[in-house]
């Protein structure tokens, strides 16, 4: 950020190192006290943040409805979940289709578009960027109602592909912004060499630049994954046939219950099944995600 360099009173080097030494000495006295305070607070907050997740996992395998009344742990909740509605595997499949299409589509459109925005002058360039950012400003429901009508016109209602296409559009502001910044961060010399060797623009992009923007692609892909896997409003509006439901929609209709009884045990099992891919991906890719995010926002 440029403003930070103009902060008045920025000290010269010698007092700074002295300050550091002072701080180290002072820390020696108070360190154990502040550390204890820090770890106590952080541990208490960890319980608050992780508690619900741990409870959900535990509740899905314990209790009379999970074990059939035998005590200990059991998988009955999962068995009932698998048999619910059109079948768990159907819902997992639908969600996977929507998510895969959304991630691939978002990456394809954002990488090409980001490359175009970062490296080329073409008519309508600014219009495209503003148009994509405007997607952020417009409430999703505002365009979902007319989109629902449009999809009916072309016979694409109740389709997982339609849901994915719309989700790609919702991901575009973030995707284009991240990818444009990533491409701008690459020195031009990298592709100039390839272009001189007779590579086409597309060849340079494919062979050289993609490797350099991989961290940003991981970030964009992960955001698209989380958004698509968990999206609720779009499939709720578009999908009318129960066989096409994605996991979040299926879970909410499971919660709505049959004949007034709600199977909270099967619901916990469903929450666990829905959450585990997201949590795994989140933890595995966290390093990339935080780095890509930091780079994007600082440069923005």
């Amino acid at each position: 950020m440029t403003t930070t360099s103009t902060v008045p009173g920025r000290p010269a080097a010698p007092p700074r190192s002295q300050g550091l030494r002072d701080r180290v000495r002072r820390r020696g006295l108070t360190r154990s006290v502040t550390d204890a305070g820090f770890y106590t607070t952080a541990a208490a907050l960890t319980v608050l943040f992780l508690g619900p997740l741990v409870w959900s996992a535990w509740a899905s395998i314990s209790g009379p409805r999970a074990t059939g009344g035998t005590g200990g742990i059991g998988t009955n909740n999962y068995v009932r979940l698998i048999e619910y509605g059109a079948g768990l595997e159907r819902y997992v499949w639908n969600t996977t289709v929507v998510t895969a299409l959304t991630v691939v589509g978002t990456l394809f459109v954002s990488v090409l578009g980001g490359y175009a925005l970062a490296r080329f002058q073409f008519p309508g360039k600014n219009l495209l960027f503003i148009g994509a950012l405007a997607i952020l400003m417009v409430p999703h429901p505002t365009i979902l109602v007319p989109l629902y009508t449009m999809l009916n016109w072309v016979g694409m209602q109740n389709s997982l592909v339609s849901v994915a296409l719309v989700l790609v559009m919702f991901q575009l502001p973030f995707g284009l912004f991240m990818m444009r910044n990533a491409f701008e961060g690459i020195p031009r010399e990298l592709e100039e060499a390839a272009l001189l060797d007779g590579c086409s623009n597309l060849g340079a992009l494919r062979r050289i630049l993609l490797r350099a923007v991989t961290p940003a692609m991981v970030t964009v892909g992960m955001f698209a994954f989380l958004a698509a896997w968990n999206e609720f409003l779009t499939p709720l509006i578009f999908l009318t046939d129960g066989r096409n439901f994605t996991l979040p929609i299926a879970l909410v209709s499971l919660r709505s219950g049959e004949l007034g009884t709600v199977d909270l045990g099967a619901l916990q099992a469903g929450i666990v099944v829905t959450a585990i891919p997201c949590l795994l991906m989140f933890i595995l890719l966290q390093r990339h995600y935080v780095r890509g995010f930091t780079a994007g926002s600082v440069r923005g």
Partner: peptide, 30 residues
């Protein structure tokens, strides 16, 4: 350069126009 740029940006342009601008106009009409 303009042609290459437009070609690379084409998918993004199609998405923004067909799935965002057109529905927005249709919402106003509806």
């Amino acid at each position: 350069e303009a042609t290459s740029g437009l070609l690379f940006a084409l998918p993004a342009i199609l998405f923004v126009v067909i799935l965002f601008v057109v529905p927005l106009v249709l919402a106003a009409w509806m």
